[in-house]
Design a protein around this nucleic acid. Structure first.
Lengths: 142, 142
DNA sequence: TTCTGTGCTAGACTTTGTCTAAACGCAATA
DNA sequence: TATTGCGTTTAGACAAAGTCTAGCACAGAA
């Protein structure tokens, strides 16, 4: 794999710092993937990340993309979004928010948390903690 | 395929009526599948339905199970539940409710709608309607 | 230098779900 | 009774997302 920096808005140092802040050892491959993820706020699946990372030249393998996305999600750098039964999406926007999913087009939109009033959550069983609350508003053409 | 009735709580006529009420032609296979789904309120994936339907003798093919579950969901007889990235679950309980998902065990629990106060929903784009709002509370062991 | 642990990789593999082409079933018609 | 037609079912091939395995590379410690 090459050492050159990808031409992007986010510089390498910022990405490396971000990884370190989340307890992730910043390897070449992880930095490449993180750079793609944070180029712009977006919803992506593993396949798209793989394609974007390797767009110019082959930098990262499929296994590493899957492993890395899983690691990033576990470490709280990105968030899994379950809307499409066929594939798992990842959201690089960690500011709390919900989603609106267009079932006919597959489009996924962010919904500001203020736009959905989520009140009292139910009791959580003893010894359990809430990992997250996902709200997905499914919409379609009339 | 055999004509015998499965030994269950719900009788065939009730199931047939239920299918008709949802505009579904009640074929032998569809009745078998619906019977399994409504034996008790439960969350099942296609694989489990396939196994349960064919537990005693081969009654329904894989393709038909998948097609039928899709049809039932489209017609509003059952509901798709997206919690596990690896497989699609179906919920035969159509009374509005939410879900609590145990990420470490894969267990899926119902949450009464009253336990989550969902307030004002966001504006829906022109020409679109809300198909449903899914709330999933992900919990895990401390 | 050798050992140990972590990360990366190609490619095989698994699993869920879809597709296809043929056969079936049943009702309506002749 | 035979025929036609349409929706349904089927076995098995297929597709696609994601996981696993075994080996290699590299860095730090002994």
């Amino acid at each position: 794999m090459k050492q050159e920096q990808r031409n992007t808005g986010l510089d390498r140092e910022t990405v490396v710092r971000k990884l370190r802040e989340h307890g992730i050892t910043p390897t070449q491959q992880r930095v490449e993937i993180a750079t793609v993820l944070f180029e712009r706020p977006q919803h992506v699946c593993a396949d798209q990340v793989l394609a974007q990372v390797n767009a110019v030249e082959s930098l990262v393998s499929k296994a590493t993309v899957y492993n890395t996305l899983g690691l990033f999600a576990k470490k709280g750098l990105i968030r899994e979004v379950l809307v499409d039964p066929a594939r798992l999406f990842y959201d690089s926007n960690m500011i709390p928010h919900h989603h609106m999913y267009h079932t006919d087009s597959g489009m996924l939109e962010d919904v500001a948390p203020g736009q959905v009033q989520l009140g009292a959550l139910p009791e959580v069983p003893e010894g359990m903690v809430i990992e997250g609350v996902d709200v997905v508003i499914r919409v379609r053409r009339i």
